[in-house]
Amino acid sequence: MSDIQYKEITFTVNGKERSVMIDVRSSLLEVLRNKLHLHSVKKGCEVGECGACTVLIDGEPFDSCIYLAVWAEGKDILTVEGLMGADGSISDIQQAFIDEAAVQCGFCTPGLIMTSYSILADGKRYTRDELRQKLAGNMCRCTGYHNIINAVENIMLKRIEEAEVKDS
């Protein structure tokens, strides 16, 4: 296997700058899971269909399975591991997934949390249908999406309310 092409990439992962030597044939999923041991990034299909491998790249959700790791050079990557505070606190979205029973087998959960995180980042108000559309790249076989949408909607409304209170 001497002809394998390697390359060092430098990128920010969950707030920390990392340099890793990678086999250029690797997907970002491979590097995150197997090199950096970020096991929240799940593999459900390897072809961009299920969303279990969703991570944020510069704030936008991508399927890390169909993203070549070499492209991550200089990018800012966020996974569920990166949502935990230094004190072990979790984000309001994660807490909402717990509170709304939006978690069952949990395999889709990290991907869905990352997509939700990006949806709610802009502080805008979306209808339930819009939320459905924005979550449509993440499949879940256990929940029928009902409680997931409840979780995302609740946090959206809560944040909007808090922002309004602050403003006034």
Binding site: V41, I98, D99, A101, V103
Partner: peptide
């Protein structure tokens, strides 16, 4: 709340 939920939402 589910006993496994925290572990599942944190990866």
């Amino acid at each position: 709340k589910r006993v496994d939920a925290f572990d599942k939402v944190t990866g």
